[in-house]
Write a protein that binds this DNA or RNA. Structure first.
Length: 279
DNA sequence: CATATGTCCTGAGAGC
DNA sequence: TGCTCTCAGGACATAT
């Protein structure tokens, strides 16, 4: 479930492809059902051939490889996608390969066990259209004022609203629980009832949790799916205080027990002692 | 418009 | 042991 820290780690893992030239692309045929590859591999190959990589960016939970043609290759991992430069976890779920020349990295692979992700080649205009109004301010650069302005009018629960990529880009299910726990805010608090001091805390811990998770190269959960570009585990799972810790003692207050509830069909974890409902 | 729900997908784990 | 069932949650389509 790559979220901002995992996708940022993928981006950093392939930064060295900047300056390389595209030698070719290949759609791996191992999967039963192909992922979304757009356009088809023929047009994809023609439009990328011999193009130079000018930048590797992250837009929310997507990795964007920019080419000197103006086109960009968008990797969208969704649940189980990985961007790799070496040693895929298995050849079975390799979906796409980008071959390069003129740099230290000969190939970038896209691997995706469940295949809900996609690899797309988009023009500048298509990319702008894809993101226009659909992607909020990035969670790493949003200010406290922006965060409050964009979320506080909502009637939704704060945990659910944090996942809305149109409001705030990058936060997913795991980090939303961790951020609210550290901010001591109950996940079912309505946004329009969250106090100014609580918004400030949410903003502070939003930045701290994501930065710390990036330093640890993301979270590899018990299913082991997430890996960095070198097929190594992340380390932030060892710093989780609530996620996937239902019925275990709270590490923050030593008194509460971690609860699991379901909000918008997704698991939420919190400590009812630390995160008392105030609204 | 804002918010809620259903859908896709595979493999791990539970339960019998 | 081996089967069936449930669940995990990214983003988007559709419904309310």
């Amino acid at each position: 479930m790559p979220e901002l820290p995992e996708v940022e780690t993928m981006r950093r893992g392939i930064l060295a492809i900047i300056g390389s030239r595209v030698r070719g692309v290949a759609a791996e045929k191992c999967a039963r059902k192909p992922i979304l590859l757009s356009p088809g591999i023929g047009a994809f190959a023609r439009r990328t051939k011999d193009r130079r990589v000018t930048a590797v960016d992250r837009l929310g939970k997507r990795v964007v490889v920019r080419l000197d043609s103006g086109d960009s290759i968008i990797f969208e991992p969704r649940m189980t996608g990985l961007v790799l430069v070496a040693d895929p976890p298995s050849v079975e779920h390799l979906r796409f390969r980008l071959d390069l020349a003129g740099g230290p990295i000969p190939s970038v692979w896209y691997w995706d066990r469940r295949g809900l992700g996609s690899v797309r080649l988009l023009s500048k205009k298509q990319l702008a259209g894809l993101l226009d109004g659909k992607l909020g301010v990035d969670a790493l650069s949003i200010t406290a004022e922006q965060l409050r302005a964009v979320l506080s009018p909502s009637k939704r629960a704060i945990k659910v609203a944090l996942l809305d990529q149109r409001a705030l880009a990058g936060v997913g299910n795991l980090y939303a629980s961790e951020i609210l726990h550290r901010a001591k805010v109950h996940p079912e608090s309505r946004c329009d009832a969250v106090k100014p001091a609580q918004w400030k805390l949410i903003h502070t811990h939003l930045g701290e949790v994501l930065q710390e998770a990036i330093r640890h190269e993301g979270s590899t959960l018990s299913d082991g799916t997430y890996r960095n570009a070198l097929n190594q585990s992340g380390g932030f799972q060892n710093s989780h205080r609530v996620y996937d810790r239902a019925d275990e003692p709270c590490l923050s207050c030593q008194r509460g027990t971690i609860k699991r509830i379901v909000q918008a069909q997704r698991s939420t974890f919190y400590c009812a002692v630390c995160q008392r409902r105030r609204s």
